[in-house]
Simulated scan of single mutants.
Amino acid sequence: MALSDAPSHELSELHDLVEKALRAAQAHPTAEASRKERHKARSRHFVLALADAFREHEGGDVDAMSRYHDDVRPHIGQGELLHDVTITRSVQIGEHWYITEVLWQVESELSLDTSEAVHDFNKLVLGSAHHKLFVAAMVPEPENLLRTLEPAAARCTGRVFLALIPHPDHWDGDTAGGVRTWQFRR
């Protein structure tokens, strides 16, 4: 498995989508006093913004599921399906709703702990989505994180992407140009 940041239309679109979500999350003021609570709130805002960005990007006929969105709960039965964000299509047959296609499965782990990143990345192996995205905090040596995630990425079906964004501790400053994206290629 090779890792590529070579320009492609799909990678460029994904990069823009992640940047848009980061800017939207940064726009939410956080009043939490402790660093831990502020980090948690900023991560929540990012997941919400990323789900919204994917919903807008994929069109109006998709469901964007996350633990923070309740709009699909009435027909799917829950907001979150294993992943931080799951983008699906569904159909109603009789009184029941069925997921017919999984477009994206997204996991994010903004801790700087590599073990936490691997734990969350492993969830992407479980899914059947056409596309998978893992978002992590920018670390001092991104190449080490990329090599660490590669064995799990090799076991994923679909197209697998990685985005690194500034750690929430750095969101008060200018983060323009702080998003990096890659695709794991077979």
Score class of each variant (00 low, 15 high):
residue 70 D to T: 13
residue 171 W to I: 00
residue 91 V to T: 12
residue 87 I to V: 15
residue 182 W to P: 07
residue 68 Y to G: 05
residue 111 S to R: 08
residue 138 M to G: 10
residue 122 N to Q: 14
residue 61 D to Q: 13
residue 73 R to E: 14
residue 7 P to Y: 13
residue 125 V to I: 14
residue 96 H to S: 15
residue 172 D to I: 01
residue 179 V to I: 07
residue 1 M to Y: 11
residue 67 R to M: 05
residue 184 F to V: 08
residue 50 L to F: 03
residue 152 A to T: 09
residue 46 F to V: 05
residue 20 K to N: 08
residue 95 E to W: 06
residue 25 A to H: 04
residue 42 R to W: 03
residue 92 Q to A: 13
residue 128 S to A: 12
residue 180 R to K: 13
residue 81 L to M: 03
residue 58 E to C: 08
residue 19 E to A: 07
residue 131 H to K: 14
residue 129 A to V: 04
residue 143 E to F: 12
residue 140 P to S: 00
residue 47 V to E: 12
residue 130 H to N: 06
residue 108 S to M: 15
residue 166 P to I: 00
residue 109 E to Q: 14
residue 139 V to P: 02
residue 7 P to V: 12
residue 2 A to P: 06
residue 104 W to L: 03
residue 168 P to A: 11
residue 5 D to A: 13
residue 172 D to S: 08
residue 167 H to N: 15
residue 94 G to Q: 10
residue 137 A to P: 14
residue 51 A to F: 02
residue 11 L to M: 03
residue 166 P to S: 01
residue 21 A to I: 04
residue 177 G to W: 10
residue 182 W to E: 08
residue 63 D to G: 14
residue 102 V to L: 05
residue 79 G to C: 09
residue 142 P to C: 08
residue 154 A to S: 14
residue 37 E to V: 01
residue 147 R to Y: 05
residue 84 D to S: 11
residue 69 H to N: 10
residue 55 R to H: 07
residue 67 R to V: 08
residue 64 A to W: 00
residue 80 E to F: 02
residue 2 A to C: 10
residue 152 A to I: 01
residue 148 T to G: 06
residue 119 H to S: 11
residue 44 R to H: 11
residue 48 L to S: 15
residue 108 S to K: 14
residue 66 S to L: 02
residue 181 T to M: 07
residue 58 E to Q: 07
residue 138 M to K: 14
residue 4 S to C: 10
residue 22 L to T: 01
residue 46 F to R: 06
residue 70 D to V: 08
residue 132 K to G: 07
residue 43 S to C: 08
residue 23 R to Q: 03
